[in-house]
Design a protein around this nucleic acid. Structure first.
Lengths: 139, 139
DNA sequence: TATTGTTATACTCTATAACTATA
DNA sequence: TATAGTTATAGAGTATAACAATA
């Protein structure tokens, strides 16, 4: 009985569950979860509108409002009305946000090491590359 | 800026979101979702106790009660008290369950084809193998 | 009219603990 | 005492639609 035709679906679920539990535990001391981390990560190089963050992360706009609410309340980002388009809220990393992001990046890297330490380095790299290819889709 | 140290976490999330949305849509006409499919899939070769299903799938016992409730209500599995241990409910695929599972397997295989048709076949196979390795963990 | 962001709401899923019946 | 299953409940996350402000 060969189920390789659809096994990847089950495997992605198990892999995600395994990884997200580990990331959640690692980020908890910083007061954020993986979704907040994803937002902070997108803001490293430049501020973005909430709309742009939604597109980058693949969330939805009402969920993003609450994520940014959380981050703003924690002092990690700030909201500013755009001068060009006053409908737009520009989200910027604060100094504290930058510090927290760096700590989160270290924790996340440590977790990743633990999650993949049973795999040869080449396999780890190849898995990352193939996931990137899978996620890219037909586009 | 190199984020390869933790990028795999984000990628697994995006990959899982992409795949689960597709599986959900494909299985909806059969009246089940991916979790029900996983349960049916484990019952192909032999009946199992709910406890065993929990271990196989990585769910929890109260969630499993409801999954089996759903499947039993739809006539896809049956519950029978074990003769050896009357605490145990043995879950068995019905004829309708077998038919539905086969349809689900075909839908899932089709979805997988669509999800990976932008990838060379060798990459698809390698991704499956590497995910299996990742999921296995240090054990 | 269309878009950005906000709010409200309902729904699903998960997590937890208490409970039963057996062992 | 411990285990398999059940039930109840609370919480988190998602999805949806209606709304306000601006373009």
């Amino acid at each position: 009985m060969d189920d390789s035709g659809y096994e990847i679906g089950f495997l992605l679920r198990r892999a995600h569950v395994r990884a997200s539990a580990a990331f959640k535990a690692a980020l908890a001391p910083l007061g954020i979860d993986a979704r907040h981390f994803a937002v902070l990560h997108e803001l490293v190089h430049a501020p973005h509108s909430q709309r742009r963050l939604v597109d980058l992360i693949g969330s939805d706009k009402s969920a993003m409002v609450r994520l940014v609410d959380d981050l703003e309340r924690a002092g990690l980002v700030s909201r500013q009305v755009s001068v060009q388009d006053r409908r737009v809220q520009v989200i910027t990393l604060t100094g504290k946000g930058t510090t927290t992001l760096q700590a989160a990046q270290e924790s996340a890297a440590d977790v990743t090491t633990v999650l993949t330490e049973h795999m040869p380095a080449a396999d780890r790299q190849r898995l990352t590359d193939l996931l990137r290819e899978f996620v890219a889709g037909p586009g």
